[in-house]
Simulated assay, not measured.
Amino acid sequence: MRHLYFDYNATTLTHPEVRDMMLPYFSEKFGNPGCSHLPGMFAREAVAEARANVAALLNVEPEFVIFTSGATEANNLAILGTAGPFAPEDRPRRIALSAVEHPAVFAPATALERLGVKKFVIPVDSQGVLDLASLERVCATGGPGLLAVMLANNETGTLNPVQEAAAIAKEYGWFVHCDAAQAVGKIPVDVRDLGVDYLSVAGHKCYAPKGVGALIVASDEARRRIQPVTFGGGQEGGLRPGTENVPYMVALGAAAELAGRDVAAEAARQKALGLRFLAGLDDIGRAFMLFGRPMHHDARLPQTANVGFEGAAAGDILSGLVARDVAVSGGAACHAGQVRVSATLQAMNAPERYAAGAIRFSWGRFTQEADIDELLERLEETLGELG
């Protein structure tokens, strides 16, 4: 039985082209970019090229790309660096975030709340879309602040109306951070079009290795408003000190260059796989619910389907699929006989009879139609065993 990997939203594999680009920087091209000799110069040039590749993919200037260890660090830097204790004196005293943000956004926001910053959680609708009217009510009272809103939800694939949210926030003098970890490399992302001040990138969600990411600081004013939260040398424009992780920066640049070649075409191919998957689920005959926007909708990731199966427990489905060598993620857990539905599905008021059996399927560049068909066969077997 061959392995089926349908957990690309958890992590992608490192693309062979990306791997081949980074490997020389562990050996013959091992120089420190901060040194003035030839090995250092070669390393510095490699970092500059990687930075330019990331910038080109996202339509920003290279100097606005700050390499980090991943999206978690980027989110923390954006939030704590603009509204935390080391931020400028005129820093925001209010922060708003959607109810479906990743813990890497919720946790630093909650840390700020303990320091006296007022935190607002903006509700979402039944498809997981940010409530813009609620956002405007928050922004219109009490002075400027910081809005944190994800572009693509990691569980459902729903895309938020970030451009519209940013326009509302900026009308009231707010700054805007966008966690785009699940979007970059999967759909076209243009920072200028979104109108945000900060945007985070996760390398391992777009075929670079784990341990690298970036924070986009999208303007000179955004740079003025952010300060480092760790201290040392002056690397990464003074915002992220420490000797540069050259192999991983090169890898993220290579992944960005790869995405820049065909991101729109690949997204269309992966959407077709999603439609095939949903059609196959219909044929199985088990009642199910797709969480988030409909699969054909443009405002969703093309390669994510969070599906709740009526009358089934997510843990039982997961166990059955693991036994059949299928990798997926669950949207609900069972402890001591109690079902715990994910915070995202709770925020969407998902019906528990479906949410308790929620499984996230996500696919990517290496997924083919035959994989979808084989997944459906193994899923049908699993559901059949559960009755």
Rank of each mutant, 00 (worst) to 15 (best):
M1P: 13
M1H: 12
M1L: 08
R2M: 08
H3V: 06
Y8W: 11
A10C: 08
T12M: 03
M22P: 04
P24V: 09
Y25Q: 05
K29H: 12
F30S: 12
G31V: 05
L38D: 14
M41H: 11
A46G: 07
A50N: 05
A56G: 03
I66H: 01
F67M: 07
T68H: 03
T68N: 01
G70E: 08
A71N: 00
N75Q: 10
L80K: 07
G81E: 00
E89K: 14
R91G: 09
P92E: 09
P92C: 12
R93N: 10
R93W: 10
R93F: 06
R94K: 13
A99M: 08
E101I: 15
A104F: 09
P108I: 05
A109R: 02
G116Y: 09
G116M: 10
V124W: 00
L130K: 01
A133Q: 14
S134T: 08
S134R: 13
L135K: 00
E136W: 04
E136L: 00
T156I: 04
A165Q: 01
A166R: 03
A166H: 05
I168Y: 07
W174Y: 04
V176S: 05
D179S: 05
V189T: 06
D190V: 13
V191N: 05
D193A: 13
A202E: 11
A202Q: 08
H204W: 11
A214W: 01
L215A: 07
D220W: 01
R224A: 12
R225C: 00
R225P: 05
G234L: 13
G238A: 06
R240K: 14
N245V: 10
N245R: 15
Y248C: 01
A251Y: 04
A254I: 03
A255Q: 12
E257K: 14
D262W: 14
V263D: 02
A265P: 11
G280A: 04
I284P: 08
G285N: 09
G285H: 09
G285C: 11
A287K: 15
F288A: 02
F291R: 02
G292V: 09
R293V: 10
H297Y: 11
D298Q: 09
P302I: 01
P302D: 02
Q303Y: 10
N306M: 15
F309N: 01
E310M: 10
E310Q: 13
G311P: 12
D316F: 11
D316I: 03
D316K: 15
V322A: 15
D325L: 11
A327W: 12
A327H: 14
V328P: 03
V341M: 03
S342D: 03
A343T: 12
Q346H: 15
N349M: 09
Y354E: 01
A355C: 09
A355V: 05
A356K: 14
W363D: 04
W363S: 01
W363R: 10
W363P: 02
G364P: 02
R365S: 02
Q368R: 15
E369C: 07
D371F: 06
I372F: 04
D373A: 14
D373T: 14
D373V: 14
E374Q: 12
L376Q: 12
E377P: 00
L383I: 00
E385M: 03
